[in-house]
Write a protein that binds this DNA or RNA. Structure first.
Ligand code: SF4
Ligand code: SF4
Lengths: 143, 143
DNA sequence: TATATTTAAGATTAAGGAGTCTTAATTCTT
DNA sequence: AAGAATTAAGACTCCTTAATCTTAAATATA
């Protein structure tokens, strides 16, 4: 459902929120090392997050990125939208061309319910929620 | 969430169930024409459905495919499993490596709920359900 | 039996996304 | 001012999946 780039971006945002919040500047290189991933690939996705207004970036020595808003203002859906887009929440499950709410198939309404529930979950869950929870429960696993 | 091949396979199964059920043999060529899709691509996926035991196939003139079971016995999840596999229902949403039910992150349990609900929907919805509903509501759109 | 029709299977090509690299721009430090 | 560090941007390669083609196998029909 979420692309590899999107999952990694979420993990990156979690790390940035954890390590720097919207105060401290964190170099992308540090994030890549902590997440044990490719700097190049991560940097590409971070650029998108900057363009989407979720991160501020700073060049030069002591440069890096930090959250553009407070952790509770950044919802998971914002990251998903920036990297993967919202197509998942908008397209027909079965791929018919001209179906719509007016001509629903057997699965349409039920599927729409599930999709909405997921959208709601992503819209209601903030970086703060995730970070706080992970700091309690499973931080050592990731960082 | 579902690959293009999977969506098309579901549409194909709907057509086969509608036009032939588990009685009449339908040529794949006819299915491709009705769905306005590539015969080659569809034939590839149909092969998987045959191997998965969802379709019987018959070579030669008057050959084609028909459902291997009654429409109510074939669930959408069977088609998804045959084409895309069940990875979607088994993997971590955020892509962490070593997380588990024992070390759940903030979103784990909520996400697991949503995923289970979708799995349930796919497991409970049979081809018969979809076909009957579409025959009532929006058949003209597809066939 | 010969021919036409249809699926099976594998090879091939095309497209898109994942992942990497190179160069440019910016800015801190000396 | 010079050099080092860091992100920005675009080009590039690689891999997976989508899509197509070719040949083989099976079978109905004449
Ligand atoms: S009614 Fe069914 S086929 Fe039509 S758009 Fe909704 S899910 Fe898709
Ligand atoms: S706890 Fe969170 S990070 Fe861990 S497997 Fe579940 S969803 Fe993924």
């Amino acid at each position: 459902m979420l692309s590899a780039a999107c999952k990694e971006s979420i993990r990156a945002m979690i790390y940035i929120a954890h390590a720097g919040g919207d105060k401290k500047i964190i170099p992308v290189k540090e994030v890549a090392e902590k997440l044990e991933t490719s700097f190049y690939f991560l940097a590409k996705n971070v650029q998108k997050l900057v363009k989407a207004g979720l991160l501020f970036s700073y060049k030069g020595p002591k440069g890096g990125v930090k959250l553009a808003k407070s952790p509770e203002e950044i919802k998971l859906i914002d990251i998903v939208e920036a990297i993967d887009g919202l197509e998942f929440f908008e397209t027909c499950l079965l791929g018919f061309k001209e179906c719509s709410d007016e001509h629903p198939c057997a699965i349409h309404h039920k599927w729409a319910d599930k999709r909405k529930a997921i959208y709601k979950l992503f819209s209601e869950t903030s970086l703060k929620d995730v970070v706080e929870d992970m700091e309690k429960n499973c931080l050592q696993i990731i960082f």
